[in-house]
């Protein structure tokens, strides 16, 4: 079967990747032309993209619906606080903390991934609360009060702002490239098989536990990176905020409005959420009402999200990384 080939990436996808690279360059140069306020918003967008891509990987591709991802956002922040306390620089700590959290998730997965879907979702929420309670007992955190990364005050505000912005931008870009490669490879195919039918996946040789474990640990590390980036820009670590359910609510909102199980869905959802926060942000508590109303609207009228609706409309998914067998090697059906 030497004539077997895979069809190359469609032209539209190649254009899209080119445009994304261009956009990345434009965004990298944002400090040249954008105000500090815009930079902060873009940093927030990068953090949101990180979280949304991670939640999509977990729920949209591996079928692991968790409402406790704030556990890892909070642990990321806490690990960074602790690492800085031991003398590590804040920027190295920002990148090392997510690795530690991924290792914790790897250990946790032995227990939580044995649960069934509904149990898993709730167990994750409970775990987040347990972690928050434990972290609050650390004298360094001072219970509800929290602590501040005062070492960051050593940098002048503009340098700090730009450093965090570039790290957030690079992280979001790296996570997107990594997710793209992952999903187009063996792990991606296996996780989608698990999502579609876990028992059938196991019956064709997919080590379902191993696949879920890798994705669970990756998603935890990604959420922890979002947590450390958030902490670096906010400076203050408070357990109630760090381990707050709002992080998972945001992740859910972005992935569901963008398009669950689509590659671009979380990115579109993150932009959408930031835009909504800008629009409703001036209305105080009405902001939450507005976000909730939008979520209900999507559930009723656009259940597959914005990208999902586009796929239904156009018949093809951008950057889907579908493997297509070339026409040339298709054999006629047996007589």
């Amino acid at each position: 079967m030497t004539d077997t080939r895979l069809r190359p990436l469609p032209r539209a996808d190649r254009l899209l990747i080119g445009a994304a690279a261009l956009l990345l360059a434009v965004l990298a140069l944002a400090p040249v032309y954008a105000s500090a306020l815009v930079i902060d918003k873009l940093t927030q967008l990068g953090i949101y993209v990180l979280m949304a891509v991670m939640w999509n990987l977990l729920a949209g591709y591996a079928g692991l619906v968790s409402v406790g991802q704030q556990a890892f956002v909070g642990l990321g922040g806490y690990a960074m606080v602790r690492l800085v306390e031991t003398g590590l620089g804040p920027f190295p700590a920002l990148l090392v903390a997510p690795l530690l959290v991924a290792a914790v998730a790897w250990l946790l997965s032995s227990f939580v991934l044995r649960l069934r879907i509904g149990e898993f979702a709730i167990a994750m929420w409970v775990l987040a609360e347990v972690f928050r309670a434990l972290v609050m007992t650390d004298p360094l955190v001072q219970g509800e009060t929290g602590t501040s990364l005062v070492v960051l005050n050593a940098y002048d505000p503009q340098t700090r702002r730009l450093a965090i912005y570039w790290i957030a931008l690079a992280s979001a870009a790296a996570v997107l490239v990594a997710a793209y490669r992952l999903l187009s490879g063996r792990l991606g195919a296996e996780s989608q098989a698990i999502r579609d039918d876990e028992e059938a996946a196991a019956s064709v040789g997919v080590s379902t536990f191993r696949v879920k474990r890798v994705i669970f640990a990756l998603a935890a590390g990604g959420c922890a990176l979002a947590g450390t980036l958030w902490l670096a820009s906010a400076i203050t670590f408070q357990p109630r905020t760090g381990f707050g359910i709002q992080w998972t609510v945001f992740m859910l909102f972005m992935v569901l409005t963008g398009g669950l199980g689509t590659f671009l869905g979380p990115v579109v959802g993150a932009v959408f959420l930031i835009a909504l926060q800008e629009i409703f942000g001036d209305f105080g508590a009405w902001y939450l009402f507005g976000i909730g109303a939008v979520a209900i609207g999507f559930a009723l009228f656009l259940p597959r999200g914005l990208v999902g609706a586009w796929i239904d409309h156009s018949g093809r998914e951008p950057l889907a990384r579908r493997r297509v067998l070339d026409d040339a090697c298709q054999t006629p059906p047996a007589p």
Binding site: A189, E190, Q192, A193, R322, R323, V324
Partner: peptide, 15 residues
């Protein structure tokens, strides 16, 4: 029990 989100080819290749 096909993997419904995948193509026929992808179903067989993953196996």
């Amino acid at each position: 029990r096909p993997f419904l989100g995948m193509t026929v080819f992808e179903n067989v290749q993953v196996a």
